[in-house]
Amino acid sequence: MIRTLPIATLALLSACATQVPYEDRARALTLTWTLEPTQSKTVSVNASQGDVLLTWQASSKTSHTLDNGEALTAVTTPFGNLYCSFGADGTCYEDRDGNDRFDHQWTIKDAGMRTVSSLTARTPIKLTVERQFSGLSEDEVSVTYQRTAALVYDGPREGVLAEDGRTFQTMLGQLAFGWLDPAQPRSPSADSWRLIQLIPFAILSDTPVRTKVNELNLIYALENASIDGAIAVDLEAGHVEDYSIQQRLSFSVIPTEPSESNAETSAEIDTDMSAG
């Protein structure tokens, strides 16, 4: 017993010291998206808290090709780029030593099925034979992966009521931008919805303030809002290239009277209302 005790202790301590190296740990994948609004680009909406106001078709495009012709998409991770294909089971490759050849291969579980969840690459293996890859030219690029993004009215947060006791005189609320699975109804367990970012949404005076979310090419003007969650809002959405969910959103206030100013930017709001 006395002899085995130090050995057991050493074994325990060595087990403690064994950890997965950071470069081999699971990595969250951040894709770059092209966003295309799926309905009329300018809409006036009477909606209620929780309603979908707008949707976009989000597409991620191929950027590289493997030596066997398989198309790949460059994806950002916390520890460098991976190059991924998205089938039912996705595969990513990594050029860890920077010699322009892939030396590691990763797997993405359920890559093609999870329409709202985050993608994570796991369990890298070192390739016995390194594989060559090359960049695609502009006309060779194609869509590799699609999702639906949506803008939802997420309700008021704080507000001062007007004399009628039902509508807001001033209000600070929020819009929720996230991934939506259009094939399933949203439920309290959020299976078909995943928040990407919150967007401030306010009534500050009698005149609606036209606000542009620069990274989403989205303009909104909140006309009125009431305590039960009803709103009237004007929305205008356009095409977006190279959107990443990790981008910090910036906002511009657009003057409502064109005669007063031709300039689009008059103020910038700094906000830290992001999640997910």
Binding site: Q49, G50, D154, R186, S187, P188, S189, A190
Partner: peptide
């Protein structure tokens, strides 16, 4: 009760 864009 409102959460995850859904009222219950």
């Amino acid at each position: 009760r409102y959460e995850h864009t859904v009222w219950t």
